[in-house]
Amino acid sequence: MVQELVQDQISADLKENKTSRLPLTPPATVEKKRTDEKEYVSKVSPKKLLPQLKKNNRKPRLKYRPEAFSIFHLTDYLDGLGGDKDADFVRYALKHSKRIITVAGAGISVAAGIPDFRSKTGLFKSLAGKNLNGPVSGKDLFDFNQVYSCDEMSIKFNGMITSLHKLAQESESTEFHFMLNEIAGEGRLQRLYTQNIDGLDTRLTHLNTKIPLDKPAPMTVQLHGSVNHVECNMCSMIDKLNPSIFKCHSEDTTNNTQVVPTCSQCEEYETVRMVAGLRSKGVGKLRPRVVLYNEMHPEGDIIGEITSHDIKKKPDCLIVVGTSLQIPGVKQLCKQFAQTIRARKGIVLYLNKDPPSQSLLDALGWVDLVVLGDCQDVPKLF
């Protein structure tokens, strides 16, 4: 009897608990109420948003492409003499291309007061003269075999370098430099390969470089070095160029200047070695960090690696500006980029004051538009 009463009481308690206790979590069929904060959260679908972002960042369709190797006279257009479609084509290339490769020459710095090399008023003409061995062309002052062949030629070379250094320090970057800097700031300039040694480009915010050249590659690759630096031919020390250490005139005796100055770091090492009783290794010579004719390019290998990397990145626009491409290596560089960009239906522009020779066009293999005129007028198209 007692057991039956206990069992009845337990059953009653269980029945009461089932009716009075709520479950720990609501059943799946019960809809949770949204808080006020969640009601204001917009429903965003990433799958729908991503294509929309891509659509907004998509390059607009190119509506007009001139016949290959067509010529556009920029000055005539700015004077109101037609060429609207070609002008729109140039605008499209500069505004909408995503991975622009630019190969620049001395022509982009002429407006800053720095002479080019091969024009009628260029350095090759103005530096021509004579020495004890006969006539000297301006080109000889950029030839490694000539520059250090005798003291007289070295003195002329020193004078030319220090003059260019002074001019570069006093000059300002041009409108075309600033345009390239702006494109780089937008993330659309893949690389600037410059033949210029003045450094007017690399002083701008987004056109930085590395001296010596190193990876990861900087935005600007100086193909021919810089007039603003010197390097020791023995210990490879790099320093800023100090004009006072170079003998620029045959009668120059200030500060015990030497025709080819010695390296202070090597001299310091020699002093330490002498005190330590070690044998002498010699003292190196300082020379401007400029690549001359008839010498091995000290950074040729790494430039080749950067070029190969840029080609694999699939650039969509090549701008060759302010250069007649007389240097075989630079001409080959442009040809490789032109072939890659043409294969991807990109745009190849050649900008210069003087029309290119047929042999140059044949060497490049493809140019969409030859823009004749001052490159400083290109920003006026915008």
Results as ranks from 00 to 15, higher is better:
K166T: 13
R344N: 12
S226C: 11
T340M: 08
L62W: 10
L325K: 00
V330K: 02
F144T: 00
A28S: 15
L132N: 14
P27E: 14
M160W: 06
S308F: 02
I114Q: 13
L381E: 08
L53V: 14
V320G: 06
D310P: 01
F69W: 09
P216Y: 14
Y92T: 02
K33F: 11
T209K: 10
G82H: 11
I341K: 09
L333S: 08
L364H: 02
N256K: 10
F69E: 15
S42G: 03
I183G: 03
Q332C: 03
R273E: 08
V320H: 02
R287L: 03
S173N: 07
L292W: 13
E67R: 13
M153D: 08
Q190R: 10
D116C: 10
Y77D: 07
E299G: 02
N208Q: 13
F69M: 14
Q3K: 07
L180I: 04
L22N: 09
L213S: 02
E186L: 10
P355D: 08
I101F: 03
I319T: 03
K85H: 10
R191I: 00
N256G: 14
L141V: 02
F144N: 08
V275T: 03
H224E: 04
Q265V: 00
L364K: 03
M153G: 06
P218G: 13
L78T: 01
P46W: 08
L318W: 07
V110A: 14
C150Q: 04
K353Y: 01
T29N: 11
K130L: 13
T205H: 11
G322M: 07
D201R: 01
L207D: 05
Q258F: 05
P328A: 09
L22S: 09
F117R: 06
K130H: 14
A112Q: 12
K47S: 07
D84S: 07
R191E: 01
L207E: 04
R342W: 11
P135Y: 11
P60F: 01
G113H: 07
L325C: 00
I341T: 09
D214C: 07
K313R: 12
V90S: 05
Q265G: 00
S359Q: 12
L50F: 08
D79T: 00
S308Q: 12
E231Q: 12
Q358H: 09
R344V: 01
L50M: 07
N145P: 02
D86Y: 08
S236T: 03
H249C: 06
T340D: 11
T35M: 04
C266I: 03
R287F: 01
E37N: 06
R34M: 12
P26R: 14
R99H: 13
D374C: 00
V136E: 13
S226T: 14
A104D: 07
T254D: 15
P379N: 05
Q326R: 08
L381I: 06
